[in-house]
């Protein structure tokens, strides 16, 4: 049962290590490999990995979508290669080897985007090359692809990238809707809606992800309160305990 990430998990995942799915040697089915990363262990919303691109390029849906696709390509292909080469990569040099493999695919996608969709490439700016240091990708290589068969690694990478894409679209949608009153460049809000310009500026990124995390933990706590899920081991003190006491 996935529970809320503990403080230690957050710190560990923030350090780009093998964080997040600490129980990685638990046997899983292929279906779980594919679906786990999509929502229950969503890289951005639950594991809090890859926050830099998730906050930086989601001022419009289009940018978020392009970033999600680029990251998905890099993650799936590097998972495939790391998993195929796992017997050849020496344990001591594994991180550098992963980074080299990832950097190769990032170079490919960077050049491809600059040639095929130059305006998107310009809007994303240096965040396409920065996919190299995305903790989420390195984390999946270290925690999954380097010790699992090729097919399952690809499934896992696909699921994780789908989760990343969903998170980016969610954030991009909210920020574009609030910040400029449109979606994908088409105006959807009523004409007297005053755009919240702050949402497309840097602080809006932090606030949006903050709101989404608050909403997620609100639903989680409510589920725990109504007993539909197992109760958290340590009951968080604060508002809910006061209400229970009253």
């Amino acid at each position: 049962m996935p529970t809320a990430p503990t403080t230690q998990d957050v710190v560990r995942s923030a350090h780009c290590g093998t964080g997040g799915s600490a129980a990685l040697l638990v046997e899983t089915t292929r279906r779980q490999d594919l679906l786990r990363g999509v929502w229950k262990e969503n890289p951005v919303l639950v594991q809090l990995l890859g926050l830099c691109p998730a906050l930086a390029v989601t001022n419009t849906v289009r940018n978020g979508f392009a970033m999600g696709l680029a990251t998905a390509f890099v993650l799936v292909s590097s998972s495939f290669f790391v998993s195929s080469l796992k017997r050849l990569i020496p344990h001591e040099a594994r991180i550098s080897s992963f980074v080299l493999i990832i950097a190769t695919f990032v170079t490919v996608v960077d050049i491809f985007m600059a040639a095929m969709v130059p305006d998107v490439s310009k809007a994303l700016g240096p965040f396409v090359p920065l996919i190299v240091v995305n903790c989420m990708i390195l984390g999946r290589q270290e925690a999954f692809a380097s010790r699992r068969p090729v097919r399952r690694s690809v499934l896992d990478a696909t699921g994780t990238s789908t989760g990343f894409l969903i998170a980016l679209l969610l954030m991009g949608g909210f920020r574009e809707l609030m910040g400029s009153g449109s979606l994908l460049g088409v105006r959807v809000m009523p004409h007297n809606f005053e755009p919240w310009v702050i949402m497309v500026l840097p602080p809006g990124g932090f606030f949006t992800l903050g709101f989404i995390l608050l909403a997620l933990s609100w639903t989680r706590l409510r589920k725990a309160e109504t007993g539909r899920m197992t109760r958290p081991r340590r009951w968080p003190h604060g508002v809910l305990t006061e209400r229970r006491a009253a």
Binding site: T7, L48, P203, F206, G210, L214, S217, L221, G238, V239
Partner: peptide, 25 residues
């Protein structure tokens, strides 16, 4: 500080970071 239970840890940190970013603007 008595932070509401839903805003423990990361939610709180993100809102603080947003306010800091606002100040730096």
């Amino acid at each position: 500080a008595s932070v509401p239970a839903i805003a423990r840890d990361m939610g709180f940190a993100l809102i603080v970071a947003g306010s800091l970013s606002l100040a730096f603007m």
